[in-house]
């Protein structure tokens, strides 16, 4: 790693102030940022740790919303969201491995928007709201393609608000080396319709599978998806799967998520 100054503020205001400095970057769990810094792909002058800010941590129910602090580790979500939003908790429990889940956070995952990360699918499929230090951003506006989001320089995620669905599930087909999603489908059924978000498959990052949503909104059953498949155009092709294979998995994983939804 290149060297840098490390600061660990105790409040959001202090963190925002520190991030205003030259070449400053926020650090949450560090599960993605630190490995990329080891490869010297990233050279911040200052790293601002967000994990010392208590206000950014915790899972709480507010009416029909589940609000998760941005610096809440996956393991905590897996445990504390289980009663209110079991599909989201189950997703958190499948990220990385137990050690990664003890450090990695939802805010870090969303801000990074890795095209194969798990959380963006739940966030988009739930129509969640990303709360930052300055504004609220709808999930549909937040994800802007691989590793790209609506966040401005120095803006930090403080919480994510998930509307609790009637039924939901996440089906993940794992990339065997990284344990990220080769293709993952998050399906959420709300009173006003069904949302399906796919991660791992597209070169554009997480996306809503509109054909799947349309079919499921009129008939929420795995059979409703029979004969339906995503287009291979724009799908990722790599060592672990061709675009055709990923397109095929979109259908399979969505069907499995629907079958598992409760």
């Amino acid at each position: 790693m290149y060297n840098f100054d490390f600061v660990k503020p105790a409040s959001v205001a202090d963190a925002v102030a520190a991030l205003a400095g030259e070449e400053a970057q926020p650090l949450s769990g560090g599960m993605t940022l630190l490995p990329s810094m080891k490869q010297r792909l990233n050279a911040p002058a200052t790293l601002v740790s967000l994990t010392g800010i208590d206000a950014l941590k915790g899972v709480c129910r507010e009416g029909n919303m589940l609000v998760i602090g941005a610096a809440t580790p996956h393991a905590v979500v897996a445990k504390e969201a289980a009663a209110d939003y079991p599909a989201l908790a189950a997703l958190a429990g499948q990220i990385g491995d137990p050690m990664v889940r003890n450090r990695g956070t939802i805010g870090g995952s969303l801000a990074n928007n890795d095209p194969s990360a798990c959380y963006p699918s739940a966030t988009l499929a739930s129509g969640a709201t990303i709360v930052t230090n300055t504004r609220e951003i709808a999930a549909d506006d937040f994800f802007q393609g691989m590793f790209s989001t609506a966040l401005h320089e120095g803006e930090i995620i403080t919480a994510v608000k998930f509307p609790i669905p009637e039924k939901a599930a996440y089906a993940k087909f794992m990339q065997p080396a990284s344990r990220f999603a080769l293709t993952g489908a998050f399906v959420a059924k709300y009173a006003d319709g069904v949302r399906v978000a796919i991660t791992g498959a597209s070169e554009g990052g997480v996306f809503r599978w509109s054909e799947g949503e349309a079919a499921l909104s009129s008939n929420f059953s795995a059979e409703a998806l029979n004969g339906l498949s995503a287009s291979a155009d724009g799908m990722i092709g790599d060592l672990h799967g061709t675009p055709d294979y990923r397109a095929h998995l979109v259908g399979v994983m969505t069907r499995r998520a629907v079958a598992a939804a409760h």
Binding site: F6, K8, G30, M31, L34, M99, R103
Partner: peptide, 27 residues
């Protein structure tokens, strides 16, 4: 390893298992 995969570096910090190769000492 240097990609937080192998787990040879696991220690417990405040009772939780973490990969010590992906945690800053100052943090």
């Amino acid at each position: 390893c240097d990609t937080s995969q192998c787990g040879a570096c696991v220690v417990h910090v405040d009772g939780l298992a973490v990969k010590s190769c992906t945690v800053l000492a100052q943090d």
